[in-house]
Amino acid sequence: MNILTPIPNGLTMSSLEIAERTGKRHDHVMRDIRTMLKGLGITGPSFGGSYRDSTGRSLPCFNLPKRETLILVSGYSVTMRAEIIDRWQELEAQQAPRIPTHVEALRLARPQALRVNEGKPSGPPVIFFNQWRPPHVPPHG
Rank of each mutant, 00 (worst) to 15 (best):
residue 55 T to D: 12
residue 75 G to Y: 12
residue 95 Q to E: 13
residue 17 E to R: 03
residue 77 S to G: 06
residue 48 G to T: 08
residue 92 E to Q: 13
residue 6 P to F: 00
residue 23 G to W: 04
residue 11 L to Y: 04
residue 126 V to Y: 06
residue 131 Q to M: 04
residue 3 I to W: 11
residue 36 M to I: 05
residue 94 Q to I: 11
residue 94 Q to V: 08
residue 105 A to G: 12
residue 3 I to L: 02
residue 74 S to Q: 05
residue 47 F to S: 04
residue 104 E to R: 09
residue 31 R to Q: 14
residue 4 L to E: 15
residue 140 H to S: 10
residue 9 N to E: 15
residue 122 S to V: 10
residue 28 H to C: 04
residue 60 P to Q: 07
residue 37 L to M: 07
residue 135 P to Y: 00
residue 97 P to C: 12
residue 56 G to Q: 13
residue 95 Q to V: 14
residue 56 G to W: 09
residue 31 R to F: 11
residue 38 K to P: 06
residue 22 T to W: 00
residue 1 M to G: 08
residue 37 L to I: 05
residue 68 E to M: 12
residue 18 I to Q: 03
residue 85 I to K: 08
residue 120 K to S: 01
residue 78 V to R: 04
residue 50 S to N: 13
residue 121 P to F: 08
residue 138 P to L: 05
residue 51 Y to S: 02
residue 33 I to W: 01
residue 96 A to H: 10
residue 118 E to C: 11
residue 131 Q to W: 03
residue 78 V to Y: 08
residue 128 F to H: 12
residue 41 G to D: 05
residue 130 N to Y: 09
residue 3 I to K: 10
residue 102 H to E: 01
residue 9 N to P: 00
residue 134 P to W: 03
residue 141 G to F: 00
residue 94 Q to L: 15
residue 86 D to F: 15
residue 104 E to V: 03
residue 136 H to F: 07
residue 122 S to L: 13
residue 52 R to A: 11
residue 99 I to G: 03
residue 45 P to N: 13
residue 69 T to C: 14
residue 98 R to W: 10
residue 72 L to H: 04
residue 48 G to D: 09
residue 33 I to G: 03
residue 81 R to L: 10
residue 124 P to Y: 09
residue 31 R to V: 10
residue 89 Q to D: 15
residue 3 I to E: 07
residue 119 G to L: 01
residue 103 V to P: 05
residue 63 N to H: 15
residue 121 P to L: 12
residue 30 M to R: 09
residue 62 F to I: 01
residue 15 S to R: 00
residue 106 L to D: 01
residue 20 E to T: 12
residue 74 S to T: 07
residue 35 T to S: 08
residue 133 R to C: 08
residue 88 W to F: 14
residue 68 E to R: 07
residue 48 G to R: 02
residue 101 T to W: 00
residue 15 S to F: 01
residue 88 W to L: 00
residue 113 A to C: 08
residue 122 S to Q: 11
residue 24 K to G: 04
residue 28 H to A: 14
residue 32 D to M: 10
residue 134 P to Y: 08
residue 107 R to K: 06
residue 78 V to H: 08
residue 126 V to E: 04
residue 137 V to N: 04
residue 11 L to E: 07
residue 5 T to N: 11
residue 18 I to Y: 02
residue 33 I to H: 07
residue 102 H to R: 13
residue 25 R to L: 12
residue 95 Q to S: 09
residue 72 L to N: 02
residue 41 G to L: 02
residue 19 A to L: 07
residue 118 E to S: 11
residue 75 G to L: 11
residue 77 S to C: 10
residue 87 R to Q: 15
residue 138 P to E: 13
residue 98 R to M: 14
residue 8 P to K: 01
residue 80 M to R: 01
residue 119 G to K: 00
